[in-house]
Amino acid sequence: MLTNPEKKHLIASSVLFGILSVWLVLSSPVAAEYADVVLNKRAEKEGMRPVIFSHWFHRIRFRCKVCHSELAFKMRAGANEVTMADIIEGRFCGMCHNGEVAWSVENCDLCHSGKPGLESQIKGSHETGGPGIW
């Protein structure tokens, strides 16, 4: 259990974080495209840049249902345990990025294109205006 001062601390820091986020959204050059997703549970730990997945690019080519079915991605940022081994074997991004439906995964930097330090989350939504709530 949290003690009272700890709770205050927690609230104060969340408020600060909230205001900070507002400031960030309003004035920084961060203008990520709506619905871009950062995947960075493992990539940066292994020395690769974070992965950026663009909904806009893919939804021009596929309906949501193609990716959000049990074969592929749960509809929650960060909820999928994506590894490179699985991708190479043809799961997750690899169900298309296999040289048949789309280019294969040799070209690491097309996916691993994020700035260092990004957190796994969806961008451009009101959810990211403040700390994520799931």
Binding site: A12, L16, L20, W23, P29
Partner: peptide
């Protein structure tokens, strides 16, 4: 104490905010 920190940060931010804007 927290509010003081908060205001300090805000003050700093409002001063520094225009910089990235101009950049953009």
């Amino acid at each position: 104490r927290w509010f003081m920190i908060l205001f300090a940060v805000l003050a700093f931010l409002s001063v520094s905010a225009p910089v990235p804007k101009a950049f953009a």
